[in-house]
């Protein structure tokens, strides 16, 4: 039996066992390795993707429950080589260090800013309660996100 998922605007099919975590299907079958596996328990946020527009931890979503849904991963954010405003702000703020948390950070923030276009610094920090960064100490990531809000 094959599952259909719409991944980054394209229909993809997976024969994976339906309890397989979505993140494994994205990475192993579709080679979308942007989403990272760090904790597999929903605390680090590195595997965050958007499922029908909502941010989810893709390590905890059985692929069977993502069938016929829309999945957006970090690979979808830039279009034709042009970074999204949020990605660009991260680059311009020199926010990136090891980089492992950014795919998840970006998806959490993208979804958050779509829902709350004019957040405060505290709102942004609260939105990141499920995204750990071990390198940067967060503030620059928050600065970058705020700069996008202010530019909009």
């Amino acid at each position: 039996m094959s599952l259909r998922l719409n991944v980054n605007g394209e229909d993809r099919f997976s024969a994976a066992e339906p309890l397989t975590p979505l993140v494994d299907v994205l990475r192993d079958e579709f080679h979308l390795t942007g989403a990272k596996i760090v904790c597999r328990e929903g605390f680090c946020g590195a595997c965050t993707v958007l499922l029908d527009g909502r941010s989810v931890m893709s390590c905890l979503v059985p692929v069977g429950l993502a069938a016929d849904s829309e999945v957006r991963t970090v690979e979808s954010l830039a279009t034709d080589g042009v970074l999204s405003p949020l990605q660009l702000a991260m680059e311009q703020h020199d926010a990136v260090q090891c980089g492992m948390c950014f795919p998840g950070m970006l998806m959490s923030l993208t979804s958050f800013l779509e829902r709350m276009p004019n957040p405060s610094r505290d709102d942004i920090k609260a939105a990141l309660a499920g995204n750990i960064c071990r390198c940067t100490g967060y503030e620059r990531i928050v600065d970058a996100a705020l700069s996008v809000v202010r530019a909009a």
């Binding site: 990475r27 979308l32 390795t33 942007g34 989403a35 990272k36 596996i37 991963t73 970090v74 690979e75 954010l77 830039a78 970074l83 990605q87 991260m90 680059e91 311009q92 020199d94 926010a95 990136v96 980089g99 492992m100 950014f102 795919p103 970006l106």
Partner: peptide, 21 residues
């Protein structure tokens, strides 16, 4: 100078291939 890092762009697009990838 505040020279920006050249690996940021790929890291931000999820393209960087760490060993785990």
């Amino acid at each position: 100078m505040d020279f920006p890092r050249r690996d940021a762009r790929d890291k931000l697009q999820g393209r960087t291939r760490y060993i785990v990838d």
